[in-house]
Design a protein around this nucleic acid. Structure first.
Lengths: 234, 234
DNA sequence: GATTTTAAATGTTAAAATGACATTTTTTAA
DNA sequence: TTAAAAAATGTCATTTTAACATTTAAAATC
């Protein structure tokens, strides 16, 4: 295999980000109203090309920073999409990434500049290319992942209430959960730390705040070796 | 974004296959003793470049056909690997695919020609580049996947015994299972069809043969809508 | 300041699933 | 006929699950 072999098998490589946020008791995704061709005026995921001098996994980090101003975003690769004519304009392979962000953290001005808007996953507009497939794949992956690992905390503020946490899981699974069963289960894992404070934004009575106890979780992980299920919530 | 943008972000694109087979009561992977540079003489996954005129998902199908003579192999994308220097010789992005095959079906001559050999997943040689990471990612994925979906049958002959099936799951999870509990559980799903025949290859007494009942499984899937767990075997 | 409103917090019980455990059966080979 | 080897089978105690309604706390309203 010579140099010409490598050159004869080159493809434009892009990444697209399915950016999840949690607000108004629902899981939302951030979509871009495209102000540029191709497909100008339609909705799409936030994406961009991979640069020649960066790791593949670095590309979504850079692109998300450009859009949200955030660093240290929780990212997971979903899948590479590579149908021949997925992008009618050119042959482009795109690797989809899921990003979980806190909707209070991002830079509103940057988002505006990019014409980005939030949509609930239960009702979002038509998307260009195969972006809808990407979103669906990302949601499926999150559903599996959230049963195995405590990824939900990446979508909440560091301090959160149990009703908020429950409503997050209900939105992920599109399934109502029983309060008492949910609380019993999540608290029995011992990875939540109850604080003295209450949060009164959602009700008159207010609800106690909790923190995710990373140390406790790491200990749990270590003990149970190869853990295949952890957060079986329903 | 003009044409030059596309051209400035091109990468050589390859796929690598983690080919799983089940024999001698253990999960094995098929590795190639490389007869060509780079890394001549070392072990690697079976791989190749993606062709400009094929879908990304088509590339592993073609490559596996070349190696095994098989069509209709069960394939799943694992992840795209794209660290800058993962291939020291050139910038190559590689998409890893898991393949589950029946070890009796493949073309032995083809395999010999490619210097391919089976190794148990509990003990395989050092691999080039990041291929070990690929294997580990594929094994992790299979473990999660096998809890949700009946993918194991792709590794067995169409007719198989319960001891064979149990031993397959034991190998996937690297964990002994209790005979009685395993049988109770797998049979309670109602997706196995017991045959009159016995298979006597493994014991004097012989064990009854079973078939995977795809129709029953599809019905089960349909009923339970969005099923998040199915084959929780331990 | 009494009453209403709203969401948070809490416990029990019956049914189902799980995990642990040992013996008998079938067949072939000695 | 006996020995050997793996296949097949059932029970029970424990744990987990799912289903269910009331009380509590605080703010807002009258």
């Amino acid at each position: 295999m010579g140099k010409q072999d490598y050159e004869a098998h080159q493809f434009t490589l892009a990444v697209d980000c399915i950016i999840f946020g949690f607000s108004a008791n629902e899981l939302n995704i951030l979509l871009i109203h495209r102000g540029f061709a191709p497909e100008e005026g339609k909705w799409s995921l936030m994406g961009g090309f991979v640069n020649p001098d960066e790791d593949l996994d670095q590309a979504p980090v850079r692109i998300l920073h450009e859009l949200t101003g955030l660093n240290e975003i929780y990212l997971e690769q979903v899948t590479a999409f590579g149908k021949k004519h997925r992008d009618p304009g050119a042959r482009v392979i795109s690797v989809a990434y899921s990003a979980l962000i806190r909707t209070e953290d991002y830079d509103i001005e940057l988002i505006k500049k990019h014409n980005a808007h939030w949509f609930p996953i239960s009702n979002y507009p038509d998307l260009i290319f195969d972006h809808k497939e990407m979103v669906q794949a990302a949601i499926s992956q999150i559903r599996v992942r959230a049963r195995l690992r405590p990824i939900g905390f990446n979508l909440l503020t560091p301090k959160f209430t149990l009703p908020q946490l429950q409503s997050l899981y209900e939105s992920i699974y599109d399934h109502k959960l029983d309060d008492r069963n949910f609380r019993r289960r999540i608290q029995s894992l011992g990875i939540l730390q109850k604080l003295e404070e209450k949060f009164k934004g959602d009700s008159k009575k207010g609800a106690f705040l909790f923190k995710f106890d990373k140390e406790a979780y790491d200990r749990l992980l270590k003990e149970s070796e190869e853990m295949t299920t952890l957060l079986t919530l329903f």
